[in-house]
Every structure is written in C-alpha cells, then in structure tokens.
C-alpha cells in the first residue's frame, strides 16, 4: 500500500488535479469532430505500427544473435565484417538508411527484367518491404553490439559445466549460453525495443501508412494541427508503457538465480539509439 500512499501526497494530488484540468480543457476547447471519421484509419495505423515493431524486432534479434556471436568469439574473418556492419548501421541516421533502400533499391530493381517478371515484383513495388528491411537491419546493428557484450559476459564456468555434463556445443549454446546472455541484457533489450518503436514513424516518409502517417494525413486534410499530434503522443506513450510492462514481467520471471550486480551494468543504457 506504500504505492497508494505515495500517490496521495498533497503535491501529487495537486499535480493530478492540474493534469485532469488540462485533459478536460483539451476535451472541450480543442476540436475532436474529425475523430469518428478517421478512427478506423487510426486503428489500422496503430496496427501497422505494432506489426512493424514486432516483426522487425524479432527478425532483427534473429540476425543480432549471430552478429553478437561472431564479434564475441568468431575468427577475424567473421568478427571484422560483423563489427563493420554494426559500426555502419550505428554511425548513420536511420532516415538515410530507409531512403537509401527505398529510393536506391527501388530505382535499381526495375532495371532488371528478371526481377520485374518474378513472383516477388508485386511486393517489391510496395513500400513496406523496404521499411521492414531497413528497420530490421537497424535493430540488428544495435542489438548485435548488445549481444556481443551479453555473450562475453556469461560466466565461463557455466559453459564448462555444460560441456562437462556431455552436452554438445549446440546444446550448450541453446540451453545455457543464449538464455543466460539474453537474461542479463533484458533491461537493455526493453529500452532498445522502445527506441525501435520510436523509430517506426520514420517509415511514414516512404508512404507506409502507420499511425504517424495517419496523423499527418488528418493534419493535411483538416488543417487541425495540435489535436492529432497530441493524440499521437498519447498513443506512443501507451505502447511504450505496454512494452515496459511486458519486459518487466519477463525480467521478473527469469530473475530467480540472477547473479548479484548483474542489473547494475545495464541501467541507463536506454539512450543508445536515435
């Protein structure tokens, strides 16, 4: 009940009253008559955003594991390209990468008749494959770096114990190394996923209709500036809150035998990605 008591301190009550007054003022003084007309489009946009976030995070993570592995223990001919990939992805703006793929590849592909006649062409003419590609590579670049540290940080004794029990290298990796590594960086991964959420509106610039693009369309069609943007900010806050909740639940579930001090190294790393 300490949480409730902390909320009921007098200054917090006043802050909440001010906030409630602001919300009521927004509801009455601002224009919301466009909302019913655009609500279906907004729901669709929100769905696109979440879909993009989940798909690119999962694909990016699958790419990041070999990238981190190659950097942590790989021979130089694997670790050098992996490191170069991570440096390039992390060193250039995501917007530039998205435009490079969309405009660059998009203008290159039609020159080849083989591609134009292939089964994939109807997809390659749309914008979302390029958005997925760019966001996946970006997530993989940032997470590859995180996973390198995670793999290197797992106690060697654990791996040796697994080998001593006669586990094959693959089993050791699947049953011991990967779970321990992921568990240690779960807080960082949560922060990175929120950063990935904040990166999704960039794909609106290549005509993918996610929630940010919907709000720009409302702004362009009705000349209402602030209301869609406010609502958009609230939507992102809510999704970010859900991500935080999910990750803290995962963290609690896997924290039974966590080494003391393992969490301290990962706090404050949420600021690693634009």
């Amino acid at each position: 009940m300490t949480g409730l008591r902390a909320l009921l301190q007098p200054h917090r009550l006043i802050l909440m009253a001010v906030f409630a007054a602001f919300v009521i003022w927004c509801a009455y003084a601002l224009r919301w008559d466009w909302l019913p007309k655009y609500a279906p489009l907004a729901v669709e946009g929100l769905w696109t955003t979440i879909w993009l976030l989940v798909v690119t995070s999962v694909l990016g993570m699958l790419l990041a594991i070999p990238l981190g592995m190659a950097q942590a223990i790989g021979p130089w001919y694997l670790s050098a390209p992996a490191r170069a990939f991570c440096t390039i992805i992390r060193g250039t703006p995501l917007l530039l990468q998205i435009w490079l793929f969309y405009y660059g590849l998009g203008s290159l592909f039609p020159q080849f008749p083989e591609i134009r006649n292939s089964e994939l062409w109807p997809y390659l003419r749309q914008a979302w494959p390029y958005a997925v590609l760019a966001l996946t590579l970006s997530y993989a670049g940032y997470e590859g770096e995180v996973m390198r540290g995670a793999f290197a940080g797992v106690d060697k004794g654990q791996l040796e114990a697994g080998r001593a029990f006669g586990m094959s290298r693959v089993t050791v990796f699947r049953r011991i190394w990967l779970p321990l590594a992921v568990r240690n960086v779960l807080p960082t991964l949560g922060g990175e996923t929120i950063l990935q959420l904040k990166a999704t509106p960039l794909v609106a610039t290549i005509t993918v209709m996610e929630i940010y693009a919907v709000s720009s369309r409302v702004r362009a069609e009705t000349f209402i500036v602030y209301e869609p943007l406010l609502l958009l900010a609230v939507a992102y806050l809510l999704v970010a809150g859900v991500i935080t909740l999910l990750f803290s639940r995962w963290e609690r579930r896997g924290s039974g035998a966590r080494a003391p001090g393992a969490t301290t190294a990962t706090t404050g790393q949420a600021a690693t990605k634009p």
Binding site: K198, L202, Y212, Y236, A270
Partner: peptide, 30 residues
Amino acid sequence: GPVLRDLLAIYTTVIRAVPELVLILILYYA
C-alpha cells in the same frame, strides 16, 4: 523538492517515450 522532482520525472519520461519526430513536429509548430 518533491514538486520539482515529480515535474522533472514527467519531463524525462514523456520525452523519452514519445518519438523524436513527433516531438519535433509538436515543438516546432507550437
């Protein structure tokens, strides 16, 4: 003090949870 701390907590939380692109548009227009 407690009020300042709460206000700063709101500032850092909101800014870090909302995409920079949206913040840029809001702050730019506003």
